[in-house]
Structures are given as C-alpha cells and as structure tokens.
C-alpha cells in the first residue's frame, strides 16, 4: 500500500492525498473502507472553515464510494483513491479494476446519476425491502452531497470514477 501527499496538479485541481493498493488487499477487509475514509477526511479537513464538520461529511461521502468499490470490482489490479482540491470543491478519483460486468455497472450508474428524478430514486432505494441496491451510495452522494460524477477509461482493465463535491458553504 502506498500513501502519498505530494502536491501536484491534477488538471486544475491540486492533489492532496493519494492511496493505492492491490484490489485483493483492499477487498480483504471491510473495515478498510471506514479506516481509509476516516483517515482521508481528517487529513484534508484541517484547513476547511469547520474542520470537524467537514471531516464528518467527507468521511461519510468517501466511505459510501469505497463501500461501492469494495462490493464491485474485478478480482485483481491496482486500486487508487486520490483526493484533489480546487477552492471549495474536492475531487475524489477512484481508479477501479473492472471486468465487463462491473464496468457496465459503473457506466450505467453514472449515466443514471446525470438524469432523472434522483431524489425520488434515492428515497425509494433507501426504503426498499431486501438487499440494498448496489448504486445506493452513488445516489446518496448525488442527492445529499450534490456530487457531480463522471467516468473515464483508465490504463489496463480499469475505470476512473470521478466525484466532485462541495461540502461547505462559502461564507460571505
């Protein structure tokens, strides 16, 4: 596992923190989702206007993304999670090894997130009996955190899932 914080450009965003490990390592322990999201949240929140509030929100959002990846990925390959900042916005980029089935899931999930009545879809999914829909975390981010999603192919059999979040109101 590698964890780095070298400041470098990620397009117009300044990269804050990046983590990568083998997917089978990440997927070997459910608690990694909680630990990683908590660690990332603490590290990047200290210079937000309310670091504790920001950390709670960011941890919740990132954890749902990590839990989604934990459940849906190809068996092997490198998993990379990076967080970059531009002003009030945070960009989470997850590079996820995929097979045909999981690639389809992510593409169609992001497609759904960009149209339709998302709040209604999300609330229906929250209260449906039986197992949760696998896209529940992505829906939550889009509805409750106003996240904007995009997806692009990455080297090898992988996709890059990108979520842009703005978690704090800009104060006058």
């Amino acid at each position: 596992m590698n964890l780095g914080a070298a400041p470098k450009d990620a397009g117009e965003h300044a990269e804050l923190l990046e983590f990568d490990m083998d997917m089978d390592g990440f997927a070997s322990n459910w608690a990694y989702c909680d630990r990683l999201s908590t660690y990332f949240a603490r590290m990047i929140s200290h210079n937000r206007s309310d670091s504790l509030l920001y950390s709670n929100l960011f941890s919740s959002a990132l954890n749902e993304l990590l839990e989604t990846v934990y459940r849906l990925h190809a068996p092997s390959g490198r998993f990379v999670c990076s967080v970059a900042r531009r002003g009030a916005s945070e960009r989470i980029t997850l590079t996820v090894p995929v097979d045909a089935q999981t690639a389809d899931f992510y593409r169609s999930a992001v497609s759904v997130l960009n149209d339709g009545d998302l709040a209604s879809r999300y609330h229906t999914a929250l209260f449906t009996d039986g197992p949760l829909q696998p896209n529940i975390g992505l829906l939550e981010l889009a509805v409750d955190y106003a996240a904007r999603f995009s997806i692009e192919p990455a080297d090898g059999n992988a996709i890059r899932l990108i979520a842009d979040l703005k978690l704090e109101e800009t104060e006058a």
Binding site: D34, S60, N63, E67, F127, D129, L132
Partner: peptide, 17 residues
C-alpha cells in the same frame, strides 16, 4: 452518532417504520 452507512440506516429505518 458520527458515522452511519446506508447498510445501517436501511436496517434502522426498516425497524423504525
């Protein structure tokens, strides 16, 4: 309750409703 994922919320929500 600082953190709650959708799995936990789903279980709690079902029981409360």
């Amino acid at each position: 309750l600082v953190r709650l994922n959708n799995v936990a919320f789903h279980a709690l929500a079902g029981a409360l409703l």
